[in-house]
Write a protein that binds this DNA or RNA. Structure first.
Lengths: 115, 115
DNA sequence: TCATCATTTCGATAGTTGTCGAAATATCGA
DNA sequence: TCGATATTTCGACAACTATCGAAATGATGA
């Protein structure tokens, strides 16, 4: 892959609704992996920042792989990772999913009048 | 490819709002490719069924690759392809993007009360 | 300081996929 | 029937990525 959104300085918290082409692609790619989506679902469901290890315990996944996916989600700007001592806490970055969803639904409105 | 949603009989027009795990993943994967997304955008923008060749003319892409992406979008259930003689017409399958968007925003609502 | 635990990085591997040119198939008009 | 045009299939290649075990790093508490 030549130039992804991952190369960007990236997902500034301000202005969460504006989605670059590259950022939109990065988000979709991050979400497209089933394991990552499930991970995100768990984080979302938790509501409060979720401990890394708790996820690890609940999912049949190696630590290395989990770390990898967390980085992907973070790089895409989907989650925030608060690093506190040796524990890391994951939380959904607010507004991002909504922004993406809006972008998707924005594609729909035009319906063919002839049909 | 082991077991993806593509194997399913699948994107029945009825009940567009229910999204299987597999189907959701297939949709996201289909959308994650930049070229495919642009293709979809063009189809959406056209409103009315868009000729395959018109797309081909407007995009720097080989016929083989275009065919491949169209099949991906169709298999994912994002577009309908009406085959009419030697021309094929592409149109957005209604409701699918909305359903996916809904699924995404559904992840958001729970916000941490402590923070 | 040291053992322990959480997380990351490294290296390697297997599987997936986007891309194309060339060949095949299909449809139409002459 | 024949040639032209539209689309698909085939075969191949390069790039990417999910995955893991092992080793490294970092932080804590004894």
């Amino acid at each position: 892959m030549p130039v992804t959104a991952s190369d960007q300085p990236a997902p500034s918290t301000t202005n969460p609704a504006r989605l670059t082409r590259a950022r939109r692609a990065a988000l979709l790619k991050a979400l497209a992996d089933p394991r990552r989506f499930e991970l995100l679902e768990r984080i979302a469901k938790a509501g409060c920042p979720l401990g890394c290890s708790q996820v690890r315990a609940a999912l049949p996944i190696s630590a290395a792989t989990l770390s990898h996916h967390i980085k992907e989600l973070e790089t895409a700007g989907l989650i925030d990772v608060r690093r506190e001592g040796r524990f890391h806490y994951l939380s959904l970055r607010p507004g991002v999913l909504e922004a993406l969803a809006a972008r998707l639904t924005a594609l729909e409105p035009t319906t063919c009048p002839t049909r």
